[in-house]
Amino acid sequence: MMSDTPEMVKKVFAIFVVGILIIGFFMVFTQMPKGNEVNVNNTVSRFYVMKDVDHATQMLDKGTYFNKDMVPLRNDVPYTPITFGKSSNLEDGAANVVTSIVVDYRGFDTLGEVTVLFLAASGVMLVLHGEKRKIPKKKIAPSEIMYVGTRIAFAVIFLFGIYVFIHGHLTPGGGFPGGAIIASGILGLFLGRQGYSPNKAGLTVFESLSGMAYVIIGIIGLVGEKSFLANFLPTGTIGDLFSAGFIALIYIAIGMKVGSELSAVTNAMIVDTEED
C-alpha cells in the first residue's frame, strides 16, 4: 500500500500492526464465552430455535421479558414442544432453523445481501464495459467428449441446483448455494465449447425480474400483513415440502437471481487482456 517506504520498514510496520491486533484479540477471547461456555439459551436465537418469538413478544408487551436491571429473562419464556412431521401452523414452518432466520426472522438482511451481489455483478459490468470478448485461441480445442459431457452435466447440475433451492427450508442449502450450483453448470459450458456465450439479454431479464419478485413479495407482505417482508402464506406442517409459507417463493427468486448473476459475472470476466 505504501509504495515509497523501504521493504524492511514496511514489514516491521505490518508485523507490529498484526501483532497488536492479535494480542488484543487473544486478551479479549479470555473474556468471551467459547467452546463449552457457549450457551444458545443466552442469546436471542433461543426463540428462533423454539419458533416462539410470538410468546417472547407477549412477555415483552407485558413487561416481564426484561427485569429491572434490563437483563432479558430469556429462559423464562415457556417452551411448546415441536415434533418433526406433526407440529403445524407454527409461526415459522421451516425445519431448517438457519433458513428461518435468513429468510423470515432477519429477512431484511437477506434482501440487502441479494442487493450486494447484484451491485457487485453490475459493478463488474460497469468496470469491464466495452471490453472485447476474448475468443480463446486455445492450443488444444475442447474434445468431443468434453463438449458432450459438459452439456449433459449441465442438465443434471441445473436440476440439482433447483432441487437445492426448493428444499432450502428443509435441508442445508437454499437460494445462494442453489444459484451458485447453477452458475457452475454454466461455467462448465464455457469450458466445454470454444467461444460459448450465453444470451446476455436473457440473463439480464431473468436477474431483474427475480430481484423485483423478491421486493414485490416484500410489498405484498406490507399490503396484506401490514409489515414489509411479512409471511402471508400458511406455514403448514414442519417437514413438508409445501410448508414454511413464503420461504420457498423467496428462495426460488434468490436462486434464479444468484444463478443468472454469477453466470453474467463469469461471462463479463472473460475479456481480452492482450497478454502478448
Partner: peptide, 13 residues
Amino acid sequence: NVIMGNWLPPFGE
C-alpha cells in the same frame, strides 16, 4: 419504528 416481517425488536429487524 418500521417493523420488518412483523417481528418486533429486539427479536426481528
